[in-house]
């Protein structure tokens, strides 16, 4: 009676294997993507790549007939300027929203705000780009009396709105993880709400908040479609937020379709891809390690 049917053994094995494959598929995909991007760019990377010129020249002329030049400094500056503007807006607003949601409001309002912010995250990036193009563009032209509103400022504002949901949700988690006994101790000592925020919560949650900001940066650096539409696509080092710029991601998106497969241009775009991949990988890894650090700390105490 205790013997089991052969079919049970087989099906158990099959199900277990399937689940195992699902589990490790994420790893396979990540390495797969990295491998293919790397393979496409490798030809250029190991033969003609000149790191100094690549990183420190502003001359990006991939389609010049006589003298092709691949310098991405201006494009890096574009990505950096848009990211900095986005973070200048997103960090105070994102942290503020997280603090408000986690500490100052309760019940229905809290649920409503959380859903709304999640909703913000669900808007497709091309729609954001469209808003940049059709709404922000004329607004910036009117407001600052400039000929073109597709600028680093425009892209930065759009990106900040896209980065805020991730900053809010991760920071809120970090604040929620602050033990309630800290709050209670501080309240019993007669703390005001504002003092609670900057004397108790911010120090106690600082790692989580930092991770939230980093993930926001990662989002801003990696975003493509919205910035492609909103920043004006001009290869130059911006002198002010009201200059048009072009980002690394937008360059790849705009030019890959035009570049003949296997050409230098094509391969350079993949090298940019590897560069971007490295940046976002490092940012996300740092954020992950910081968050993991918190867990270990809380585990101890």
């Amino acid at each position: 009676m205790i013997t089991r049917k052969q079919w049970t053994t087989i099906s158990e094995f099959l199900i277990e294997t399937t689940i195992r494959i699902c589990g490790i598929s994420a790893i396979i995909f990540v390495f797969g993507i990295f491998f293919f991007v790397f393979r496409e760019g490798a030809g250029f990377l190991f033969s003609k790549w000149e790191p100094l010129k690549f990183f420190f020249s502003t001359e990006w002329y991939p389609t010049s007939v006589s003298n092709k030049r691949y310098g991405i400094l201006a494009i890096i500056a574009g990505t950096a300027s848009v990211t900095v503007i986005a973070m200048t807006i997103a960090v105070p607003f994102g942290l503020g929203a997280a603090i408000f949601i986690s500490e100052f409001c309760t019940g229905k309002l809290k649920e409503f705000l959380k859903i709304l912010i999640e909703f913000l995250a669900a808007i497709p990036s091309v729609v954001w780009g469209f808003i940049g193009l059709m709404v922000m563009n004329p607004l910036i032209i009117d407001l600052f009396r400039v000929p073109i509103g597709l600028t680093a400022l425009n892209g930065g504002i759009i990106l900040s709105l896209m980065a805020i949901p991730i900053i809010v949700s991760i920071s809120e988690d970090a604040l929620k993880a602050v033990p309630d006994s800290y709050r209670e101790a501080a309240i019993a000592l007669g703390i005001t709400k504002w003092q609670m925020v900057y004397r108790v919560l911010m120090p106690a949650a600082k790692n989580g908040l930092l991770a939230a900001v980093l993930l926001g940066v990662g989002r801003a650096v990696g975003e493509t479609m919205a910035v492609l539409l909103a920043t004006g696509h001009a290869v130059q080092i911006p002198g002010s937020p009201l200059d048009s710029v072009r980002t690394l991601t937008a360059t790849i998106a705009a030019e890959l379709g035009e570049a003949p497969v296997g050409s230098d241009h094509y391969q350079v775009l993949f090298v940019i891809g590897i560069f971007l991949f490295t940046i976002t990988f490092v940012i996300n890894l740092t954020a992950y390690l910081i968050v993991k650090g918190i867990r270990v700390q809380h585990g101890e105490s």
């Binding site: 800290y182 209670e184 101790a185 019993a188 000592l189 105490s301």
Partner: peptide, 21 residues
């Protein structure tokens, strides 16, 4: 003033809860 009330009435809790400073 709750702030002054709590200043003159201190409280010690069941589980020691020093702040992480």
């Amino acid at each position: 003033s709750l702030i002054n009330l709590r200043k003159s009435v201190g409280m010690v809790f069941q589980r020691p809860n020093p702040l992480p400073i």
